[in-house]
Computed example of a mutant assay.
Amino acid sequence: MRAEELLDAPHVDVPTVPAPVDCMPSLVAAGRTAPVVKVDYYGGTAWAVCDMDLVRTALTDRRLSKDIELTPEWMRVPGVMLGSQPRADVARTMVMSEGPAHARIRRLHARIFTPRNTEEWGARLVTLAETLLAELTGEVNLVEHYTYPLPLGFICEMLGLPAELHPVMRRATDDIIYSPDQAVRTAGVGALAGAVAGWAADPGPLRDGLITGLIADESITLDEVVTWTVGLVMAGYESTASLIAAAILEALRRPPDRRPRTEAEIDRWIEETLRVHPPFPHATWRFATEDVDLGGYLIPRGAPVQINVAAANRCPHADDFDPDAARDHISFGLGHHYCLGAPLARLEARVALSAFLPRFPHARLSGTTEVRWESEWMTRRISVLPVVLDDERYDR
């Protein structure tokens, strides 16, 4: 079909600036407007694919490339997440590269996320979870005391960062992802990259970990060490923390006898949480290398394209949370860009729930403080998860 015969995707309004709101209703509504929609974004237009069948096609269509060099000039805005990526001649990231460059970066990262490493990490995660839970009592914001400290502490240990640097990581990533102020986001990127660059130049303050391992590999440049470490920090705990918080929220919305107990039940619970509450409601950017016919809709050459994961996961109209329904989701992507850290994210969530639920079997949501979300169209998390903990401790 010729381009002029294809449908023009309708415009929709979705929140593209971080704010203390839940973006989910807008993203789901966008998906029910049309299979492909357009969104105004920083003075330009982006296309978002919403229908699950079309999403699966888009995720594996090589004409929708993730090569950062294809980024249109109008999107290279300081403080915008994509604009925070380095230039291709500085260092490419795994999520914004294709071809041999992507294959090389993915191969080097795959040496980290091996089944053996994941199994060994499980024991350390259990210890971290038990340590955090032992300090909890009364009514707490579980986000600040458990769902964030657990994956943040773990990723910092993986990287080799001492404990005193954990708050630095948290502040920087919060600024980069959730500040509505572009200047603050830009400064956060600079602060995080600058800190990593300092450690790469002088690794003396570091313990043995991923950063020292990257530095020791002569095939990896210092710019790549910085860029990849920043990416591991951003993806390595922010999305997992969001997943853990949402999974616990769904558990506390139910009476104790309807909460997951066995390992199989917890695994199904996590998969349903990934479907209903994807931490990244849209996937990272793609760019059309030519005019693309996607389900009868035109995505013109050069167009920036998003995958509306939130809408696709609920297609068609499966909004209810039902772990026994075994519904598919694409929260970790599909194809050659499938999330390499998916097994680790699942492990962290499994450990978090397996430790929390039996230790506080009668925990409940606060009756006086509300659950609060913050989000924009690419990121979504619970900022306040107020939980009243019971006094009945887990009998070891």
Rank of each mutant, 00 (worst) to 15 (best):
Phe356Val: 06
Ala30Val: 06
Arg314Val: 03
His362Arg: 14
Ala191Leu: 08
Glu135His: 07
Val168Thr: 14
Ile68Lys: 07
Gly333Ser: 10
His329Asp: 13
Ile176Tyr: 07
Thr284Met: 07
Gly296Ile: 05
Met52Leu: 15
Asp202Val: 06
Asp89Pro: 11
Ala349Gln: 05
His11Arg: 15
Pro162Lys: 04
Ser239Glu: 12
Leu357Asn: 08
Pro10Tyr: 08
Glu265Thr: 05
Leu298Gly: 02
Val168Leu: 14
Thr71Glu: 12
Asp67Glu: 14
Tyr237Phe: 15
Tyr41Ile: 06
Ile211Arg: 06
Asp61Thr: 11
Tyr338His: 15
Leu64Tyr: 10
Val233Asp: 00
Gly188Trp: 03
Gln306Phe: 15
Gly138Asn: 07
Leu6Gln: 11
Ser65Thr: 13
Trp269Lys: 09
Glu265Leu: 04
Tyr394Leu: 15
Glu224Tyr: 06
Asp319His: 12
Arg107Gln: 14
Pro115Ala: 11
Ala193Arg: 13
Ala58Tyr: 09
Arg286Lys: 14
Arg346Ser: 10
Trp74Val: 06
Leu27Arg: 03
Glu265His: 05
Leu249Ser: 01
Trp121Asn: 11
Asp223Gln: 13
Arg258Pro: 00
Arg350Ile: 03
Val39Lys: 01
Ile176Glu: 06
Met169Asn: 04
Asp293Thr: 01
Glu263Gln: 13
Ala345Leu: 06
Ala201Lys: 12
Asp181Ile: 11
Val305Lys: 01
